[in-house]
Design a protein around this nucleic acid. Structure first.
Lengths: 331, 331
DNA sequence: CTGAAAGCGCTTACAG
DNA sequence: CTGAAAGCGCTTACAG
């Protein structure tokens, strides 16, 4: 591996000149040629550690993600990565395996590694997060959760919830089980439900019950079974696609046909909801696009430019076979 | 951010002593105490760039992955990451979006970034790969494909293919469409098929046809439709779970019931094969475990210890509803 | 336009 | 056990 000194010698100039050439400073035509030649001969490429050591900063965006094996995470990461590459930044992933403590550690570790910025695919913002972000003073962007103290990019959970509520009501459903998650997750646990509630309140004679389950399929399946026994809803409105998949499994094993005997909807727009049969009606979010904007925003922040504090990414209701048309009527 | 010099001053010692303390060299009890105290006060943690600059090497394993949004990739990465963390190494992911050229670039870029080692989740090994690996002289480990020149960790594609063949034959199927992929992918395109062929050859009166399709679901779906029309197989043996999902979709849209009118099997053991209904019978591979061994192996290689050139990870046939029991008979 | 020098934060022989 | 010095490969004022 050759160094800047090798190039300088080969080209017969000082290394400061080579450095200037590399960094777009003013260099004479003749010297430029010689340097270019030397670089080509050796295949030289600067040592990034020496660069970072001087700069006290990298062009790497540290990205903290709760899990690698979810559609939302993957798509978001792909979006971030692609956009960052275009802007000559790199993405470094820290997978925390849904462990909030590891998120905190990652924040400090990223700061120590002189990341230019940090993106957090957030699920829950604790006091420790806030403390960490404030103490490291590295630009930060939250994805998926909103917080007044930090720049955030969220999906439009409230309006998605509202739209889903309207949709279900318009299809004629009135006996509804809303299968949600913990309210510690503001976006998924609170906002979606609030939007949905608003839709419900605009219509008379609804029989709606609210339940809470976990994010994984087996837990959702178990919850669904109980709810079917005790409440016999006409439809499950689930706070995530995975929960909807759990309901589907429960209905298979109970011998209930979807959508004739039970309907179900999700949120997310995960690939699998369109692959399976019946397909699941869902509120699709645009994870990859969100990742791309996030990348653009964090780079703006790194360069100390202005970015709106809160960005809301859009959604779209995708109709599939998991919801029947009971009676179409105006609300 | 404090530096080693700050600590040295605070503790009243030379920075070489602090460095020695940090790196486990011999330091007197009293000095040790003072240094520890100073570190605690300041929250000091060494600048990794300065360390890497000196060491000319990092403790980072560069991992090249063709895509982020596949079950196999995610699980493998999770395995690598977790194991690497335990051994005090870091994983850096380079996503190439299924672009072989980018793989080559990543190899050089990782070498330039002084990665301690490189893991490639391989699909196809070209001459350029070989050239790159040889020229960078960084320890390399291949996952998923085998190559005589490099250390590799593969799944037992051949025997999985054989076992799947036996399984299908034992279930009584004889009119079989094998839906494979390009032979440029040795593991998926060649080995699985070879194993399957061996099983077929051991049994008389088989009517087997071999087809080739792409890795994605829509392509597989289209291929399946054609094959159903022209051959009407009793079963599709698909080279991947995704292809099996394509067959499933084709059969839905053709109004063919699975498994009564058509059976289907996959390879991979993707989560989704167990979530959907009917579940898909598949040869499950152990991606996460494979990732863990890969991590162990690359670290061994980094430390110039001996590692067997080829490691074969196991598999398991998972029976689900997508295959019927035509007639159980000994072969 | 070009070069000599200092310095980024660490580690590693080498003396003592 | 401990410290002074050199050096890893780069960049950045500062002169010229």
């Amino acid at each position: 591996m050759s160094t800047i000194l090798d190039i300088a010698k080969l080209a017969g100039v000082a290394k400061s000149t080579v450095s200037r050439y590399l960094n777009g400073g003013s260099v004479g035509e003749a010297t430029k040629k010689k340097i270019e030649q030397a670089i080509k001969e050796t295949g030289y490429s600067p040592n990034p550690f020496a660069q970072s050591l001087k700069a006290k900063k990298t062009n790497i965006i540290g990205t903290i993600v709760p899990r690698l094996d979810s559609y939302a995470s993957s798509q978001t990461l792909i979006g971030i990565d692609e956009q960052l590459k275009k802007m000559n930044y790199q993405m470094l992933i820290s997978n925390t395996s849904q462990n909030l403590e590891r998120e905190i550690e990652s924040i400090y570790s990223f700061a120590n590694q002189k990341m230019a910025g940090i993106i957090l695919l957030a699920t829950e913002i604790t006091d420790q997060h806030i403390e960490a972000f404030e103490s490291v003073k590295v630009p930060v962007l939250l994805i998926g959760q909103e917080h007044e103290d930090f720049h955030s990019l969220i999906h439009d959970d409230f309006h998605a919830g509202y739209a889903m509520g309207r949709y279900v009501l318009e299809k004629g459903y009135r006996k509804i089980a809303y299968l949600g998650v913990t309210e510690r997750d503001i976006s998924v646990g609170v906002k979606r439900k609030q939007g949905f509630k608003k839709a419900i309140q605009e219509v008379a004679d609804c029989d709606v019950r609210f339940y809470e389950t976990l994010f994984n399929i087996p837990a959702a399946q178990a919850s669904a079974k109980e709810i079917i026994d005790e409440f016999q809803p006409a439809i499950f409105v689930c706070a995530t696609d995975n929960i909807a998949l759990g309901v589907l499994k429960a209905s298979y094993s109970e011998g209930i046909t979807i959508p004739q005997n039970l309907a179900v909807t999700g949120f997310g727009g995960y690939d699998v909801t369109g692959i399976i049969h019946p397909g699941i009606t869902t509120a699709k979010f645009f994870y990859k696009e969100a990742g791309e904007s996030a990348a653009r925003h964090i780079v703006e922040l790194v360069n100390e430019r202005n970015v709106e504090k809160l960005t809301v990414s859009k959604f779209e209701i995708i109709e599939r076979e998991s919801v029947d048309n009971l009676f179409k009527r105006p609300l």
